[in-house]
């Protein structure tokens, strides 16, 4: 990492595992669970959050000294809302079907706790470049979990990835289906998102005992 000092690369790498926004900090779960039935939606959601969090952190960090602390929450909300409107309009213009699937959850990026959490905890006290790295890192940490959940739910629930059938054809009985394999439609229902995240937390904490709560 020639470009980044050790401290800076830590900002990006930490949220990927040991300080993950979803499984450790418990932020941003609201929008994370509802849209993970398909891998494609998860990826688009991650990219949207990446954009909003990266740019938002820089903006907040640039104006951090002129925001009166009493109304800072309203100022932050307005900044995020403006960025989310951009995301929403871009999605509507270039991926209309997908923006229908995501429905109100694009709008809910505004109140995604990761964003407010990082503004409060990091961007208000650090310079623009470090805030940008922190935003990118946390958005990646969020995206990783979203993509893992989306991957398993789409693979086990409908036997496809990004819409391509990879386990064979369930009607023609090819591939795995020839051996009597059935799709688990249960994985597509919303409660399974919670249970899959619960299992991810289980795996992660068994690997790193320091994270176990008492």
């Amino acid at each position: 990492m020639g470009l980044l000092s050790k401290k800076d690369s830590k900002l990006i790498l930490d949220p990927l595992a040991d300080n993950n926004p979803i499984t450790i900090q418990v932020l941003g779960i609201c929008s994370a669970l509802a849209i993970t039935a398909e891998l494609e939606a998860s990826i688009v959601m991650s990219i949207s959050v990446l954009f909003v969090l990266g740019v938002g952190n820089v903006i907040i960090s640039l104006i951090r000294n002129i925001i009166p602390s009493k109304i800072r929450i309203i100022v932050q909300l307005i900044v995020v809302a403006a960025l989310v409107i951009i995301v929403d309009l871009v999605l509507k213009a270039f991926a209309y079907e997908l923006s229908k699937t995501l429905s109100v959850f694009v709008g809910l990026i505004i109140t995604n706790c990761i964003i407010m959490g990082r503004f409060e905890a990091f961007a208000l006290g650090n310079g623009p470049w470090r805030s940008f790295l922190d935003g990118i890192g946390n958005a990646f940490g969020y995206g990783v979990i979203l993509i893992i959940v989306g991957f398993f739910r789409e693979l086990l629930g409908s036997g496809t990835l990004l819409g391509f059938p990879i386990l064979g054809d369930p009607i023609e009985k090819t591939g795995l289906y020839a051996f009597g394999y059935e799709n688990n439609g249960f994985m597509l229902l919303s409660p399974m998102a919670l249970i899959v995240v619960g299992l991810i937390i289980w795996v992660q904490r068994s690997k790193n005992k320091a994270l176990i709560e008492d």
């Binding site: 249970i195 619960g198 289980w202 904490r205 005992k209 008492d214």
Partner: peptide, 19 residues
């Protein structure tokens, strides 16, 4: 189980309640 304590088990209970 240790690794599930706290957050993990809460997620799973919420999932069961949602069902």
């Amino acid at each position: 189980p240790g690794p599930l304590r706290g957050l993990g088990i809460t997620f799973i209970i919420t999932g069961l309640m949602a069902i």
